[in-house]
Amino acid sequence: MHIDTNRWYKILVPVDLDEGAIEGFFGELEVVLEERPDEVLIDCSHLDHATSGHINLLWEAQTKCDGAGAAMRLVSVRYGLERVLRVLDLYDLFTIGYDRVEVGTQPRQGSTESGISLELEFKASMAGINDALSRFHDFLVRLGVPGTTAFDLEIVFYEVATNIRRHSGLSETDLIAFTATPENDKISLRFADSGEPFDPTSASIDFDPRKAIRSKQTNGIGLTMIQRLVDGIRYRRVGERLNVVTLTKCVR
């Protein structure tokens, strides 16, 4: 499958490299290259374990893109593939980066004093949130954040984003800006949206399980989860239009 948006295309690398899958991949690449794209994204998200067949396939794709004058970028690269590319001294021969999330999003990889930050803009739709969550997951994997902490951060991301969607009055096409910035032994998450004011720190975290079961509670659980899963949370209303929520969590 490829996505045709503003002269870039994305093609998924198949896990099983039988003859049909390889033919399908290169057939798709050929069609894409005929469109003379600016960039071809090769989605490696399914490659937890890369074989020599996958490396050959990527190399051949790179050669074809070079020949067609199109830039090629590997996205959602997992550790297994990254390790193999490094062992084979091929890592620097490919361009590796973050994915585009949806039409109109502009993820960037920027340097900070102590590492790499992830910046995303995603639509306030469930599809936009889920797609951005997947990119955030990849980012945490690449950073080497320990499993439980990474899971906590993903839950926090999901709960904050769905709370914004639910309470801010944004439409499905409005954007939420997100930045994740590792700093020494902590990571900071910043969400910004232009919806109605909503302060997630205003809710009480006095969640009483016994009472929740008795009263058949279904709401307000997300804010408790957010507040208990992070070490710090701050809300600011900037001017008339912008909500900014900043959360920090120790990752040591």
Partner: peptide, 19 residues
């Protein structure tokens, strides 16, 4: 593999009745 607050709420909201 993934449980959000809405998922927790879906169970808590009906658990009381079973009990």
């Amino acid at each position: 593999e993934f449980l959000s607050s809405a998922g927790v709420g879906s169970i808590l909201g009906v658990l009381g009745r079973s009990r």
